[in-house]
Nucleic acid binder design. Structure first.
Lengths: 188, 188
DNA sequence: CAAAATTTGTCAATAGATTGACCGTCAATA
DNA sequence: TATTGACGGTCAATCTATTGACAAATTTTG
């Protein structure tokens, strides 16, 4: 039914209006690597699939938190770590957060301002602080994580238990092979 | 060698200084779900693994582009789509980008300013534009994507071909089961 | 013990992305 | 045809995260 919108069949891999972010992967992998010498289509498919899927899943998880008026995902991660350890030095919290030092430090500041985390200078090392989860922070974490995990289940339950284990194992292999590689680029 | 830094064995799941972003997953999955009723540890492990791995991989890929003084990853994605289609309406480019309309529109503006994309009003629909990859844009794309894909291969080559296919299949199953779910939260 | 190197937190500058609102344009329908 | 609703792009406001540089504290090394 679209007349003058039909794409040029020579250049376009497929009708663009029927293409989605997800179906784009297959088309891109078929059409791009043959045109550029040395490009590996399998690696491209793997990374593009991973990126696209992650984008869908974690946007959805974040939106779920927002809709529930809960803390945002980066905050949830800091609270989770602190919930595990109870009390720790901010250097470790920042390191484990996966964010850059500057970003984690700024976020921590904000959460301290919201009185969900208490912070005092460390006596052992005057460069760092000791941080503790406040009662308010503990409550906010449990509330948010309950909502968050319910949605995690929504995603996970499309796979069987065996498939989940397989997926986790494969991702684990991918990461572990590179983790102690000095070549890996990491956040500052 | 750490003396007074030994964590409290009752609250801490493990010595915090030996913990990494990656090993944190196992500890978190073991220690948090038992404390919060209704929390599903398998779903948590799956999502946390996915998130952590993706964060490592795509930070590394972006840093690879930066180090090579190539275009950034979001720009690369727009150029990739345009490279596939040659010429298309910006509405489709924006939709396929996976970003919000506002973000994609602003980014497109910037790339047009850099003369890597040409944009003219569409005659068919005066709300949208027709965008084309310029010669400069094509060159920038091929250069950047060559660097990017070489690094994708670095990640992908830790898996056998069968494992890669399996991983792609599992992620595909995860996403496809939810894609046409009206319940899915999407960007505006 | 002194000097050099590293660690930790923070600042400034920047870049990028989000939501929600708005306006002009197009499509559906009454 | 006129009205209603949907769509496409952009604006403003906000928020988050990044790098690179710096200072203070600590650790390592000579």
């Amino acid at each position: 039914m679209p007349s003058d919108r039909a794409p040029n069949a020579e250049t376009a891999p497929d009708a663009v209006e029927d293409t989605t972010m997800w179906s784009l992967i297959g088309q891109a992998v078929e059409s791009v690597p043959p045109q550029i010498p040395g490009v590996d289509d399998e690696a491209m498919r793997l990374c593009m699939t991973l990126h696209c899927a992650t984008s869908l899943v974690f946007y959805d998880l974040s939106a779920t938190l927002r809709r529930a008026d809960a803390v945002a995902a980066p905050t949830l991660k800091l609270l989770l770590i602190l919930y595990m350890y109870g009390e720790m030095e901010s250097r470790d919290l920042i390191r484990l957060s996966g964010m850059s030092r500057a970003a984690a430090s700024a976020l921590l500041d904000k959460i301290v301002g919201q009185e969900m985390i208490e912070r005092r200078l460390s006596e052992r090392d005057r460069r760092t602080h000791v941080v503790t989860l406040s009662e308010k922070g503990r409550t906010a974490f449990v509330e948010a994580f309950t909502v968050y995990n319910a949605r995690e289940r929504y995603w996970a339950e499309t796979l069987t238990r065996a498939e989940r284990d397989q997926l986790i194992g494969l991702i684990g292999k991918l990461v572990n092979a590179r983790l102690d590689d000095g070549n890996l680029r990491r956040r500052q």
